[in-house]
Design a protein around this nucleic acid. Structure first.
Lengths: 265, 265
DNA sequence: TTATTAATATAACAATTGTTATGCTACTCA
DNA sequence: TGAGTAGCATAACAATTGTTATATTAATAA
């Protein structure tokens, strides 16, 4: 590959393919793998803000990667109470088990206008059979989703309202930073209403308001026109006992050995 | 295969191979697939109760399937507070991402004495390359783990202490029933102390005790010598707004098409 | 522009849940 | 056997969080 081509690849990597960006963090990808991932981005669609993308129980015929914008998965109880389970940020795959699950177990909604890449689950399988290492990296991505769910459980289970708010704000900061969506400092776009934030952190929106005020009064955060600024990251980390999830570089298995030992490829 | 051999297979299926039992619920398995799964059960080990199996940050060189007993995954904060993230029951794979993650993100402990089957992550990969459909069924199993985590989030986020206790007791009942570990009625072995239960449901153990007393006073549960009996399942389901997770039969993709279209096999 | 609605802010009070303390029972082990 | 400990039960009180209500501001549409 020539230098110019590599530049082009890097340009694609940063501008067009959040998945390549994500996967590259876990492994050095070769050209074939990058091309395979870029194929996933051929069909992009725009969805409005505050739309329900998937209802619980829907059959999902497609997979989606978020290119820009926010989405979230939630459950609603009979009395109308809503619990947000997790958020999807750029580079995340909405409903990553669509490959093997015919139905969705929870509802998914867009929070902002979002750009998504749409593709058939079969496409994933095809890609994994041609580029087996991508299947493993996908597995690592699922492992990270699992770690994020576990963190949400820990937040809700043992942390106070104040602590878990600090913790979630740090998680957003860290995840957005990983895909280059924070500014030079500690400010990021924050499209959540206090009500949605309350439904995420398992408290009433009145108490959510109280808690945010306390964080503001303590000079820890600053919110203005949907921009969140963390004024004292170190102090927030201490309060929340925040441990960032670091993607684990390398696989726990030697795929090359396996590939050679079978008629796999 | 002769009739006798099939009987033997069924005997293995019920007595020796909880994984075959689990996977069979999702798909009709062929002989090769059953044999491949049974190979995973060649090396079994017994672990004592209340032992930490994996510390957060440990490298895990092995995968494990629980044959009998209970284990759980948890996180501990600096002040000693503990949050249980999920439980592993017979047929469950401890740390199912061991295939792709070199390190554990959380600690895992045995609750009772447990029998486990131990095998190398590479073995999984080898098996999936020889029996690709098992890889997809494994993916479905991961999807179910994800649904259970989501339920734990909803429990902790929007349900009252009373409701989430009812909800978790129903989940245990349902999961144990799926692997044949409830008696004819609604009684099951229940090895949790009230303290562990409290650390699972995000409340103090004093309030856990209050909540269990209320369930007892309302004739909903009966506890005796580590046996839990649900006295009124319907009422508990109403209180908890419990929706059982039903394994989704069938895959969202036609693997045979994919296999034929590549040199995969 | 004005009317309407969504989002935020805050107060007063109520309900839930946590903390500290104590006693009891059953089990283990020296 | 008896001491020690883990688990369970319960009371009194404190802290956190929820509910209801009412303004205020910001965004949006007629």
């Amino acid at each position: 590959m020539s230098f110019e081509e590599q530049d082009l690849t890097n340009a694609l990597l940063d501008n067009r393919s959040p998945l390549v960006q994500r996967f590259s963090r876990l492994h050095q990808l070769n050209d074939n793998e990058i091309n395979a991932l870029n194929k996933m981005h051929e069909q992009t669609t725009v969805l409005d803000a505050n739309e329900i993308i998937l209802h619980e129980g829907d059959y999902h015929k497609n997979c989606m990667v978020i290119v820009s914008g926010w989405a979230y998965r939630f459950s609603r109880l009979l009395d109308g109470d809503r619990q947000v389970i997790n958020y999807y940020l750029p580079g995340d795959i909405i409903s990553p088990f669509a490959l093997v699950q015919p139905k969705t177990d929870y509802s998914i909604a867009s929070l902002t206008k979002i750009d998504v890449c749409v593709f058939k689950p079969d496409f994933l399988l095809q890609m994994f059979s041609e580029e087996p290492r991508l299947g493993l990296i996908y597995g690592q991505m699922l492992g990270r989703e699992d770690a994020l769910s576990a963190e949400q459980i820990v937040r809700l289970g043992v942390r106070s309202a104040y602590e878990r708010t600090a913790h979630l704000l740090l998680e957003f900061f860290h995840r957005l930073k990983l895909v280059g969506l924070t500014d030079a400092e500690t400010t990021y776009s924050f499209p959540l209403t206090q009500e949605l934030l309350a439904d995420t952190l398992g408290m009433s929106f009145v108490h959510m308001n109280r808690t945010l005020r306390k964080l503001r009064d303590n000079n820890l955060i600053y919110i203005d026109s949907n921009q969140m600024t963390l004024l004292n990251v170190d102090e927030l980390i201490t309060i929340a006992e925040y441990k960032p999830y670091y993607p684990q570089i390398g696989l726990n298995t030697d795929i090359n050995k396996i590939i050679k030992s079978t008629d796999f490829h």
